[in-house]
Nucleic acid binder design. Structure first.
Length: 781
DNA sequence: CAGTGAGCGAGCTTCCGCTTGACTT
């Protein structure tokens, strides 16, 4: 029996550490936080100095029970949770639950799981830092107050009230997406004409090659044409050549956020997929911990990388580098994300292989030499005017880290147009250059691109909002709540002019480009826009991008023992609570209403707003003598941008397409999307069909196909199809309207023989005992 | 599911940050 029990947060770490410490220690994990605030009444005694009421959640009771038993049997318990605010709090909660004295229980920390680091940590135990614990309690209590006060305000004031929520992190994330969308909608492109000239010169082998030189930008077609005119009959001469050596340095090793960004750009992974795959790699011992904000490599890892770089590419390619975190909010409880052993260059599983190799390459490159380049700029003068053209070329002199890895950049960070610079032929000052042709091409400025999941994470990290463990869940939350949608957008064609000077003759052409096409980008929904506007109006301090950074400053004061945590919370709570009360009292129901114009037929106003089931348009108002007409917006439409004409189109539903097999075929949009109605049956319409334009010829085969599929799945029908027994991928089940009910194994076997009485009984029972995931709420009083 | 949208009210929802499995209408 081991005398010592050492507790860490992650079970994968526990295994490794147990091997290092040997038989004197039993190493167990607590699987993160073991206690949380009770849900009733916020779990906080506001009147009693914000005293938190903690409970052990249902899913943690098993692990707590086991730890209690082990702690009793051990002579000494060591707390080795992560070295950050949350880790310190977990240690304190462990003391509270296991009956240990926080003033004397041994608390140790390490940033890397290596023998020397752990041995050293065990040799230097300290006790739980209550100031840091209090900073965490302040963080926890503040987040609970904000979330559990704001969400109910939304339930009261929104017409759509299913599962709405607000919080310090999620609401600001939605705001970012909402504001970007409005910037894009308000964007007015500026056009200008850029001059590009193509010349020819001989390369080293004496073969003529052509290259590009850039001229000035002209504000409009007239000035651009004027310039080309001036160039008619001109001679071109190299006036000046400048050669400048430049260097490029590798990026730092991966953190959670940079891994999510690169996996998104290079592999097209969503942030949650990246984390899922990384978790597998971690559990199998291939990589270090994947939820980290540190760019630091352990010393043993540095040695490992150095040896691998030197052995693979030679010493010239090696350069030792220490990276510093740019982000002040980083807590650096772990290492950067890296392979555990550099000798392991790949892993078997296909999905994991791509991510692992990305991590391996990035880690290698981080300890490699700069790439050395030579940039050449040749200035070319025009004999007929004062203009100057510039030809730029770049040559890679030494590849350095590029041999292994090159980081991609977001569209947002690209400067201007694509400047993929190639090689220039050798040129000499005074050399005459024959012009092939010169163009003035119309270019438009572009708005910032919409966020991807990963670029939103990047932005949140820059603002210090959220933590590595919450980036992926935050994105999931705002998608699940329907504040934000991830989708593609087709581009729209745009014309642009091209003036070409060739053989002393100028021609004008109009060409077409496709602009604004985007893939897997985040769009705010009307719900997201309306909720953001509301929260900004009434809770501008919490919606401020600097709010988290400011309160983090206070948490730091608490951690340093300069500020009492309940005093800090009190200063926040009183004005906040006043805002909540004032909002409940004075704010109107949120509708996001916008009048689009008048219905050309009836002359009544056409209004777009949020309804109970989402964004809608209505003709006329309830006060009028006639009932208003309603229609639901298409998923790509928005209250903010829809026009009267587009709105009028929506009233063309339901449409009767004609008769098929003696019954009318009608198409409409219901709560669950577009559908076809035929012969008293309903068939949902796939995304590839537009209910506003589908024809009878297109609808008929869908009806036949769906009817056939349904017939094949149907086992039994009761009460004119109101109650059905259908065959699903997991066996037979009961369907009543839109609700499904499970059958037991035994009932499934005799599905075809079930009588209506028995089926009804099964439904009754299922209704009486709805499947519950969450533990039953405790009734008070 | 050939539709809804007002207003009332019971009973429900909700936060962020730490960790993994259990779970498949």
């Amino acid at each position: 029996m081991a005398k010592n029990l050492l507790i860490v947060e992650s079970p994968a770490k526990a295994k490794t550490i147990e091997k290092i410490l040997g038989s004197d220690f039993e190493v167990k994990s607590c699987y993160g936080h073991i206690r949380d605030l009770e849900k009733d009444d916020m779990g906080i005694d506001i009147k009693n100095n914000y005293k938190p009421r903690y409970i052990v959640p249902e899913d943690k009771q098993k692990v707590v029970k086991e730890l209690k038993q082990l702690a009793k049997k051990s002579d000494e318990v060591w707390l080795a949770t992560d070295e950050d605010r949350e880790g310190e709090a977990i240690s304190w909660h462990l003391c509270e639950v296991l009956g240990l004295d926080p003033g004397s229980t041994k608390r140790i920390v390490f940033h890397e799981i290596t023998k020397p680091a752990i041995k050293q940590a065990v040799g230097r135990p300290r006790t739980v830092d209550m100031n840091l614990v209090n900073a965490q309690q302040a963080r926890r209590v503040l987040d609970r107050i904000v979330g559990f006060e704001l969400s109910p305000v939304l339930w009261r004031k929104m017409s759509m009230k299913n599962n709405l929520s607000a919080g310090r992190v999620q609401s600001v994330a939605v705001r970012l997406v909402a504001e970007r969308e409005r910037e894009i909608n308000a964007f007015k492109p500026q056009s200008s004409f850029k001059v590009e000239a193509m010349f020819t010169a001989n390369d080293v082998a004496g073969k003529p090659i052509s290259f590009k030189a850039e001229g000035s930008k002209y504000p409009d077609v007239a000035t651009a044409e004027q310039f080309l005119h001036q160039c008619i009959g001109a001679n071109y001469k190299v006036k000046d050549i400048q050669v400048k050596p430049t260097r490029r340095s590798p990026a730092a090793p991966f953190t959670t956020s940079t891994l999510q960004q690169e996996a998104s750009r290079k592999l097209g992974y969503s942030v949650s997929r990246t984390m899922l795959v990384a978790q597998k790699l971690y559990e199998n011992g291939h990589i270090t911990y994947m939820r980290t904000d540190s760019v630091n490599l352990s010393e043993t890892a540095m040695d490992d990388v150095r040896n691998t770089v030197q052995a693979s590419y030679g010493n010239r390619y090696y350069q030792s580098r220490k990276y510093k975190n740019k982000n002040e909010s980083a807590q650096e409880a772990h290492e950067a994300i890296r392979p555990t052993y550099m000798s392991n260059t790949t892993v078997p599983d296909a999905d994991a292989k791509r991510l692992y190799e990305l991590i391996w390459k990035r880690t290698m490159a981080s300890q490699m030499a700069d790439a050395e380049l030579e940039k050449t700029v040749a200035k070319i003068e025009v004999s007929t005017n004062k203009a100057e053209l510039a030809a730029t070329g770049e040559v890679l002199k030494f590849d350095g880290f590029i041999k292994v890895y090159r980081e991609d950049v977001d569209d947002e960070d690209k400067e201007g147009e694509e400047t993929a610079e190639g090689m220039l032929p050798p040129l000499t000052v005074g050399q005459q250059l024959p012009l092939k042709e010169m163009k003035a091409i119309e270019r438009n400025t572009r708005p910032l691109p919409r966020y991807t999941e990963a670029s939103l994470v990047k932005k949140l990290e820059e603002l210090g909002i959220g933590r590595p463990s919450t980036y992926a869940p935050t994105i999931s939350t705002i998608l699940k709540r329907g504040y934000v949608e991830k989708r593609d957008k087709e581009g729209t064609p745009r014309h642009y002019k091209v003036l070409t000077l060739s053989k002393d003759h100028i021609t004008k052409k109009t060409e077409t480009e496709n602009i604004g096409a985007e893939k897997a980008k985040l769009f705010p929904t009307d719900l997201g826009l309306v909720v953001t506007d509301f929260l900004k109006q009434y809770f501008d301090d919490i919606m401020d991008y600097g709010f988290t950074a400011r309160i983090e400053g206070d948490f730091d004061e608490v951690a340093r023992g300069k500020l009492r945590w309940n005093k800090m919370i009190d200063e926040f709570y009183n004005p906040f609570k006043k805002d909540v009360e004032k909002t409940i009292e004075t704010a109107e129901r949120i509708k996001g209403e916008r009048e689009l114009g008048l219905d050309p037929e009836s002359g009544k106003p056409v209004i777009a707003r949020m309804g109970r089931y989402g964004p809608m348009v209505q003709i006329g108002t309830a006060e009028g003598e006639e009932k208003p007409r309603f229609a639901k917006l298409k998923s790509t439409q928005s209250i903010e941008t829809i026009t009267v004409d587009e709105a009028m189109e929506l009233f063309r539903l339901p449409r009767v397409l004609g008769a098929f097999e003696g019954s009318d075929v009608a198409v409409s949009i219901g709560r669950f999307g577009p559908y076809i109605a035929h012969d008293k049956k309903f068939y949902s319409l796939g995304k590839e069909f537009d209910p506003y334009s589908i024809t009878l010829e297109e609808a008929a085969p869908i009806i036949e196909e769906k009817r056939k599929a349904k017939d094949e799945r149907t086992i039994k029908v009761f009460e004119k199809e109101k109650i059905q027994i259908l065959r699903g991928p997991y066996g037979p089940y009961i369907k009543v309207g839109l609700r499904n009910y499970k059958l037991s194994k035994e009932q499934q076997e005799r599905a075809a023989d079930l009588a209506i009485e028995e089926v009804k009984k099964i439904i009754e029972e299922a209704k009486a005992n709805p499947p519950k995931k969450a533990p039953a709420r405790k009734k008070k009083g």
